[in-house]
Amino acid sequence: MIKRIFLCFLVIAVLPGIIKSQAPGYIGKRFQVGYGFYLSPAFMGSTYQGNSIFGYHSGNANRGTFACNTIHEGFVEYALKKRLMIGVSVRYFRTSFDNSVQCFVYDAEASSQGASVSFVEFPSGLYYITGLNYQIYNKLYFKKYIAPWGRYLISGISLRTFTCRYNPDEMFLSASSNFGQYSNKKYSDFGPQQQKFMRFDIMAGFGRNRVFGNRISVDYGFNTGLIGLFTSLFDAIGPESLSDNLYTQANYMKKTSVWRVRGVNRLNAFIKIGYLF
C-alpha cells in the first residue's frame, strides 16, 4: 500500500512538471543517470563484517578498527526548473548489529513446570541487515547556479525496506548457572530467521555538482536522515530510551534493527558519477 502511495505521488507531482518544464539544464541536458557511493563511518555501530571504530563495550563487534558502512545507489534525476532538480534513487546497504542491547528472557516452558527462569542478557554474536532505500527528492540549487551544475541543498523522503537475518547458532542467550536444570540453556529463538521491516525517513543534505566534458557529472557532498539525526541523542545512550525498554526475543530485532538502520543512514559522505543527456 505504501509503495503504491509512493508511486502515485511520483506520477502526480513529477510528470506534469517534466512535461511543462522550461528548465535550461546543463547546456540543454536535463537528465542525469548515475551511480552513487556513500560512506558512513561505523563509530559505535558495526559494519557488515562486524567491525567498529569505537563500538560498545557490551557489543560483539571488533572494536578499534577503521570501519565504514558503504551504500551503493542508482539514481535518475531531471532538471525541472532552472534551480530545481528532482530525482528518484534506490540505495542498497548492508550492515550488522552487534547485539549491544540487553534482551529480557522469560522461559514460559520452565514456568509451566514451576521454575522461574527470567533474566536480562546481551545476546551473543551479530545479526545482519541488508536494505534498500527508495528515495524521491529534490535538489534546490543555490542562487546563480543552474541545475544540474553547482551547489545545492537536497531534501526528500525515503522509504527504507530492510531485511534482518540471524544465525541461531551464533546469536543466542544463555541462562546463568543460577537456574538449576535450566542453567546454560541456550535461548536462540528471535523469531523468523529472516525478518522484513519498513520505515520512513526525511532525507536532507547538501552537495556540489561538477560537470566534465559536458557529459559526465560528479556530485559530492553530505547526506543525512533527519529522523535519524534528531534521535541521535537518544540513540547515543541506547534504543531503550526511545520507548518501552522491554526488549524481548520476540521484538529484539524489530527494535534494534530500526536503530541500526537509522545509524547507517545518519550522516553519509557521498560521491556520485552521472551521465548527462
Binding site: G28, R210, V211
Partner: peptide, 21 residues
C-alpha cells in the same frame, strides 16, 4: 554574477547557456 570559485568550464558553459536560453 560573482562566484567565489575558480573559472571552471562548467561554470562558464552554464552561464553562457543560461544567457542564450
Amino acid at each position: 554574477e560573482v562566484f567565489r570559485e575558480k573559472d571552471t568550464r562548467d561554470l562558464i558553459n552554464s552561464k553562457i547557456y543560461q544567457t542564450f536560453f
